[in-house]
Nucleic acid binder design. Structure first.
Length: 228
DNA sequence: CCAGACGTTGTT
DNA sequence: GTCTGG
DNA sequence: CCAGACGTTGTT
DNA sequence: GTCTGG
């Protein structure tokens, strides 16, 4: 699955994802971004726009924003059927730009591993978003990350991982209008194992500051952590 | 018909 | 809003 | 996802 | 054990 991630390389975000509209407030890097926090999200808006959204999709019909904390991921296998995601899958797809995501390896405690795409500082996870109005009428935009089966590398850590889109699929994913099932199945396949890397970064994820890149590097081999 | 859920993961 | 369960 | 709380009343 | 907040 995907329960936390990092977003650095903020300057490169704009060119990497062809952001067109001027950015009033450039996002700051986050190295330990958790559910309910705001993340920079790429949506299609002739061509692309960067919007800060809350992690955890709050469906437009929700009565309480709290429902979002249970909607941080959507299974690729069932997303088309789920009432909370169906409409967004057809009409409100987005990219979740990231420099790496965490997965926890069960065993001797739970060790957070940081997974990345080799040779790509920034990559995109497949996301859905929605707009919701709180009781005072204030609009909240929120998103979820689609998950799929783990590839060979990631399955040594956990059995699920986020859907990572190839560069070619990024524009297709953002294009308006529904995608047919064959197209979705192709895009939802686990990203190739050989193009990824993963390493443990800390004993406890909350020891990693959201604001500092300092701790987002591998633990030493001597600590007995597994390397790839 | 109304009422209540609407989600994923891991663990047992 | 829409589906499911009762 | 993890970390941390998990409760009510009355008084200041 | 389970919920809430981040």
């Amino acid at each position: 699955m995907c329960g936390r991630f990092t977003i650095g390389e903020i300057k490169e975000l704009i060119t990497r994802f062809s952001i067109d509209a001027p950015i009033a407030d450039m996002p700051r890097p986050r190295y330990n971004l958790a559910p309910t926090q705001d993340a920079p999200i790429v949506v299609r808006s002739s061509p692309n726009r960067l919007v800060m959204m809350r992690w955890g999709l709050v469906p437009f019909w929700a009565k309480d924003i709290k429902i979002g904390s249970r909607m941080i991921n959507a299974r690729a296998e069932s997303v088309a059927q789920r009432p909370a995601f169906r409409v967004s899958l057809k009409e409100r797809r987005c990219l979740v730009p990231t420099t790496g995501f965490y997965e926890w390896k069960a065993g001797d405690g739970k060790v957070p591993y940081l997974a990345k795409v080799k040779d790509e500082k920034l990559f995109a996870m497949a996301g859905l978003y929605d707009r919701w109005k709180d009781p005072s009428g204030k609009e909240v935009q929120s998103f979820t990350i689609i998950t799929t089966a783990a590839n060979q590398l990631m399955s040594t850590i956990h059995d699920r991982m986020p859907v990572i889109l190839s560069r070619e699929d990024e524009e297709r994913w953002l294009a308006p209008g529904p995608l047919d099932e064959a197209e979705r199945e192709r895009m939802f396949r686990p990203y190739p194992s050989e193009r990824m890397e993963a390493y443990p970064v800390s004993k406890r994820v909350n020891d990693i500051s959201n604001d500092s890149a300092e701790l987002v590097r591998p633990l030493e081999r001597a600590q007995g952590a597994q390397w790839f």
